[in-house]
């Protein structure tokens, strides 16, 4: 069996639509998860017991569940409760739920790496908590968070492929549709593989740029 690149060219519009959906799903997940996970991480570190417990419970329950099971919940489960959403929205909801839990732990580690002396100095100056978080804690945690954050982004871009199992026509789904249609696997899967590699590479480039910008002087 030979490798026929013209097959990819012929299927280009479909494959690109799949890639586009993957990119949108990924971006939507990250845009929603970033602030949410920061809030969950701060909640876990809060002095208010009920708040840190609630955040801890959320993280521990959600990260114990397979992403696929959660996507089945949002895809098949919500309609049975009378809530009807598009496959894309169902996948987005499920992925936000899961990624927020993981990302919250990544960010919490970054927040906890800020030396205790910084908290004490802020306390001794009577800095209000919100200002301390914004002006002192987050700027110092950012350089530490960068690596885990972008690693999580790469994991997430690949995890969007699971959305293919809940009827989202993203990159994997579009490629597999062509595979079943033509019985030619290598060409379409190669396209998908290269596309995922390029997306990850792009994320790595963004990471390098961001890392330079948030570096402490």
């Amino acid at each position: 069996m030979s490798f026929d690149p013209t097959l990819i060219v012929e299927a280009w519009p479909q494959l690109m639509r799949g890639l586009e959906t993957t990119v949108w799903l990924f971006l939507a997940v990250m845009i929603l998860c970033t602030p949410l996970s920061l809030l969950v991480a701060l909640a876990r570190l809060s002095r208010r017991r009920w708040l840190s417990r609630a955040a801890g419970t959320y993280v521990n329950v959600i990260r114990a569940l397979p992403l696929l099971v959660i996507l089945f919940f949002t895809f098949y489960g919500l309609p049975s409760l009378g809530i009807f959403v598009s496959p894309f929205t169902a996948a987005l909801g499920g992925m936000v739920l899961v990624t927020t839990a993981y990302l919250a732990e990544d960010l919490r580690a970054g927040l906890m790496a800020v030396p205790r002396g910084q908290f004490e100095a802020a306390d001794a100056l009577g800095l209000p908590q919100a200002r301390f978080v914004r002006r002192v804690l987050i700027p110092q945690a950012l350089p530490i968070m960068c690596g885990p954050y972008f690693t999580r982004a790469i994991v997430t871009v690949k995890a969007t492929s699971i959305a293919s199992l809940v009827a989202v026509s993203e990159l994997t789904s579009a490629s597999m549709a062509k595979v079943t249609e033509t019985y030619r696997a290598m060409e379409y899967l190669a396209f998908a593989a290269v596309a995922y590699i390029l997306l990850s590479a792009l994320i790595a480039v963004v990471q390098a740029v961001v890392q330079r910008r948030v570096r402490l002087p």
């Binding site: 004490e120 306390d123 001794a124 009577g126 800095l127 908590q129 700027p139 110092q140 002087p217």
Partner: peptide, 25 residues
């Protein structure tokens, strides 16, 4: 109360062994 403490702490300056300056500023 945390808020009251924060206010009273502004009347008390403290200098630490390890300086604890904010490195991002």
């Amino acid at each position: 109360s945390r808020r009251d403490l924060a206010r009273r702490r502004t009347e008390i300056g403290m200098v630490f062994q390890h300086f604890n300056l904010f490195p991002n500023m």
